[in-house]
Structures are given as structure tokens and as C-alpha cells.
Amino acid sequence: MSVILEAKALQFGYAAGKPFASSFDFALESGEVVALMGENGCGKSTLLKTFAGMLKPLGGHVTIADRDVHDREKGYTLLELSKQVTLMRMNMEAPDRMTVQEFVSLGRTPYAGVLDGRSAEDEAIIEQSMNLLDVQKYATRPVCELSDGERTRVYLAEAIAQSVNVFLLDEPNAFLDIPRSHALFRTLRSLAASRGMGIVVSTHSVEYALRYADRIMVIDGGELKVSAAGEAEASGILDWARAD
């Protein structure tokens, strides 16, 4: 295993001087699934956006394969970055008029030429991504007509079609029923294993985190704490999540 994404002395947040957590180091290995947990408003989404290069950090820096994700001159250009990392969020507006097939096809945008064509290879990857998430049967339906759970899987298929090395997911199981949530995490595990992706997934479910993640990362009380999933409960980083 090798380190794919690395954060050094990272401080993240929106307002200068008010980071969500004190400065920390973190390294994501390829082939590993890390669950990101914490209370509402603790900065999970903000951290994911910072990892994805969409939000500049307040301090420190983030690199993927040793290149900076925020510095457009010395690090990745926007186009190069889009082949390395993707952030899947559920709070997007459902695209009007767009069919599932068309939406998943958007994942190949970084690989398209100026006229946005799709090669036979692109088409094969789109097909494969739809099969992986079992959305092939909706291919010609408009995305906005699907249920929230179906839409989640379509968004996932689109992100997978992007063929990235670092896959970030913001509460992907928010709208999924229990069997589909298990299926989702199993899919993430197999993506990590088969494609060597590094995956960070934020979730509120301790059960899924313990069962499917390699490590658990918690933002709690202005500190970022990381522990192997097997030792998470013993190490006390999940104490905030107890009901009593």
C-alpha cells in the first residue's frame, strides 16, 4: 500500500482564524476506506471539500500523489485534478430533463475533447459503471423522476465513471435503506480493493463505519482523531456518539 492523499499541518474552515479543528497530519493509503464521523456542523463536508481541492485550506496543504491540489500553478490544473479526485454529494439539485445514461456519461467529461465527444472506451466505462451500481435498468429515465435511493446510486455511478484515484463521499447512505446501505459499503470496499482507490466516506452510522471501514476519522471538540476501525471503540474516539 502506498500513500495517495496526504494532508500536512492542515487547517480547514471558511473564516480565517476559525478553523474547524486544530492543525493535523493525515495520510490516506490507496486501497483503504476511511469513515469520517462527527456531529452535525463539525466540518465533515468542509474537510471533504478541502481534500477535493474545491476549498482552499486556512493553513497547511493537501497533496495527491505528491502534487498540491489547491495550487493551480505548481500543483494540478483543474482538469488534471478532475482525473484524480471526485467528491460525491447528495445535496445537488436533480438535473431536469437529463436521463440516467446522460448523467452517468458526464463522469467522462474530463477525458473528452473540446467538443465533448465520447470514445468507445468511454462508452464501455459508462456501461460498466452503470452495471456496477445496478442502474442500467433506469438508463433512459429522467434522473429527477427517480427516488432518492435510486438517485444516490446514479450519482455514485457517475462518480465511478470519472475513474479517479481518490473517491470522497459525503453521507452517501443518507437516503438508502438498510440492505442498499450495506450494498453501497460493500461496493466501496470492492472499489478500494480492485482499483486501489483511496476512499473517504462521511457517515452518521457507527455500525457501517465499524463494519466496513479500515480506519475511522472523527472530528470532535476541535480535534481530528484517527484510529483503526477495530480499535475505535476501545480508543474512545466514538464516545461522543453514545446516547447516554
Partner: peptide, 24 residues
């Protein structure tokens, strides 16, 4: 208009989504 084809195809999903796909 034609040189911005990729932008036109992804912009319906919002600016952040478009940037995530490498579109200026």
C-alpha cells in the same frame, strides 16, 4: 459557443459540479 461545449453539458448541475469535472 462550440468551444464551451463541455461547460454547456455540465453547467445544469451547478458550478461546483462542473469544476469537479475539470471545466473552467
Amino acid at each position: 459557443v462550440l468551444v464551451s461545449m463541455r461547460y454547456l453539458n455540465v453547467v445544469r448541475m451547478g458550478d461546483d459540479f462542473a469544476r469537479g469535472l475539470g471545466v473552467a
